[in-house]
Computed example of a mutant assay.
Amino acid sequence: MRMFLVLTALLLSGCASTKDVDVMSDAKITGPKVIAMSGDRGAWVYQIEKRLKAEGFTLNRMATSQVTVEKQSDTKTGIYNEATARYVLNIQGSAPNSSMTRCYGGGYKFNYIDAELIDLADNKTIFHYSNSGYSEGCPPMSGHIFSDIAELTNNAWK
């Protein structure tokens, strides 16, 4: 019996969440819910995008830029790249995607995942999220990775 308890404790401690959330700005964003996605394009990114769209976000596939020409004075014209989205959600992660590594419920087991919302106009991080372990769709050990990222992003807006 004692050995069973020790093995159970070891198994469960190996599944402990490594979630770390740092919100760097308490100021709420008042503009439209438009963000660009940057970083890994793993199959699991769609799960985050789906949740953001449900919250009313418009998603750009990349932080593209457009060339802007601006007359600065009678003798000077400035040319610079201007981002088409002010906010970028940068996501990096590792979650193997094979029949032997996917969860039976369709979720993913993350070696790691990092998400960072960046304000390009101020060049500042709004929040940073990191975690590992199981996402939604991994019974019986399902986590909240995708929902956590969508909720943090949504909470950055008014």
Rank of each mutant, 00 (worst) to 15 (best):
F57K: 09
Q66L: 05
Q72K: 14
R86C: 08
H128E: 12
C138R: 03
I149K: 00
I35T: 03
V45E: 11
M1I: 08
V23P: 03
N90I: 03
T125A: 06
A95K: 04
L59I: 15
A36Q: 01
M141I: 13
T101M: 08
T153P: 00
P96F: 01
G39K: 01
K158F: 04
K50C: 02
A115F: 04
R51N: 11
P139I: 09
F57A: 10
V34W: 00
A9T: 13
A115V: 03
V67G: 02
G137R: 06
L7E: 02
T68P: 00
C103Y: 04
R61V: 05
W157Y: 15
L117S: 00
N131P: 11
T84E: 11
A150E: 04
Y112L: 06
A36E: 03
L11V: 13
A9S: 14
Y87C: 01
S65A: 12
Y104I: 12
D20Q: 15
A63D: 13
A9Q: 08
D122E: 15
M1P: 02
S147R: 04
I91V: 15
I149P: 00
K71I: 04
S94W: 00
D20Y: 08
T153D: 01
A54S: 12
N111L: 04
V69F: 07
D148K: 06
S38D: 14
H128D: 05
K28H: 11
E49G: 10
G42I: 02
K19Q: 15
I145S: 00
E70M: 13
G105E: 11
I91M: 02
T84Q: 12
A27E: 15
A156H: 05
Q47R: 09
Q47M: 06
V21C: 09
E49R: 15
Y134S: 06
N131A: 14
S135V: 05
I118T: 10
K28W: 09
I48S: 06
W44K: 09
Y87E: 04
T58Y: 12
G56Y: 05
T77Q: 11
V69N: 12
T18C: 05
S132F: 04
T18E: 15
